[in-house]
């Protein structure tokens, strides 16, 4: 039983690792790991009492290769019933598990409410571009040199907007995650390549994440402004939110009275997470009871 769990989890852990675009884990798995060890011990006891399960246990050594590549066991992966090697068991394993409801702490709730709204990336095509030519030969593009010195190009799938500059730099925006942003940037590069420019795809970089989060409690902005005067600026007659410039990580937060936060300037999801972890206890102390 123990091994079965391990096998299943290692297999699905491998599956997990396949996507090429790096994504950071949004949550730490400390609580859930504890949960696993609990259920395992529970199962072991159960196994001693019911010998009928040993039959199912024997099927495991058939796949030793997977067992050797044992890696970090992510908690919720081991618990999902959807993994491929599901073997029928005499006793419903769910009955043996002790249910542990995860603590719905405020930080976790706030973390789960983080939603990336926009993701700005840049890429260098490595060649000089003739903007007017590009504008004339592409659909859904705008070029008005008097207003803005770049072609504004749009594609539909994924829905994205790019600013293309003469130097060959492309700024790609309007995507919800880094993967889509990458795909969109590649598509723009391909379009320009097809127009006959020797476009390459050099140093793609995510420049800015714009994310929102909801803390679900109102905040006393005046008091926060008083206490954090060197980071915060709050001018309600100009802008209704408080602008909090965090130094490390270098993220700017717009904090509103109703507990909503907008993060800008973060280069990775990790930075935004970190910023929320730092700001949460601070804002917690300025909540309106």
């Amino acid at each position: 039983m123990d091994k079965l769990n391990e096998q299943a989890s290692s297999e699905s852990a491998e599956k997990r690792m396949t996507p090429s675009v790096p994504t950071t884990d949004w949550s730490t798995n400390v609580n859930q790991e504890m949960e696993i060890s609990n259920t395992n011990s529970g199962n072991n006891i159960n196994m001693n009492q019911t010998p009928s399960q040993s039959g199912s246990n024997k099927s495991i050594p058939a796949t030793p290769a997977l067992l050797s590549s044992q890696s970090f066991v992510a908690g919720e992966v081991a618990l999902t019933p959807t993994h491929s090697s599901f073997t029928p068991q005499a006793v419903n394993p769910h009955s043996a598990m002790t249910a542990i409801t995860p603590m719905a702490s405020g930080t976790n709730q706030a973390r789960n409410s983080i939603k990336v709204q926009n993701c700005v990336s840049t890429v260098h095509l490595g060649c000089e571009l003739k903007l007017l030519d590009i504008y004339c030969r592409t659909r859904f593009s705008e070029y008005n040199p008097a207003r803005f010195h770049g072609v504004v190009m749009k594609i539909i799938d994924p829905r994205a907007t790019a600013l293309v500059f003469r130097s060959g730099k492309v700024l790609c925006t309007g995507l919800r995650n880094e993967h889509d942003s990458y795909i969109a940037a590649r598509k723009f590069a391909r379009i320009i390549h097809k127009l006959g420019y020797p476009a390459k795809f050099l140093d793609f970089k995510i420049q800015n994440f714009i994310a929102t989060a909801d803390l679900r409690f109102p905040i006393r902005l005046e008091a926060l402004q008083q206490a954090h005067g060197q980071f915060a600026s709050y001018e309600p007659e100009l802008f209704p939110g408080l602008v909090y410039r965090m130094v490390r990580p270098r993220v700017v937060l717009l904090i509103f009275v109703n507990g909503k936060i907008v993060f800008t300037g973060g280069k990775t999801r990790g930075e935004i997470n970190e910023a929320l972890d730092i700001i949460y206890p601070i804002l917690r102390s300025y909540r309106i009871s």
């Binding site: 840049t122 010195h149 130097s167 420049q207 602008v243």
Partner: peptide, 29 residues
């Protein structure tokens, strides 16, 4: 303050990214 707010709200690009944006746009003056 107004300049800062304009920068943030209109393009939704905060000041840390500003260096990059100006870097890109430098050639366009």
């Amino acid at each position: 303050k107004l300049d800062q707010i304009d920068k943030k709200c209109i393009l939704n690009i905060a000041s840390p990214a500003e260096s990059l944006i100006t870097g890109i746009i430098l050639e366009d003056e």
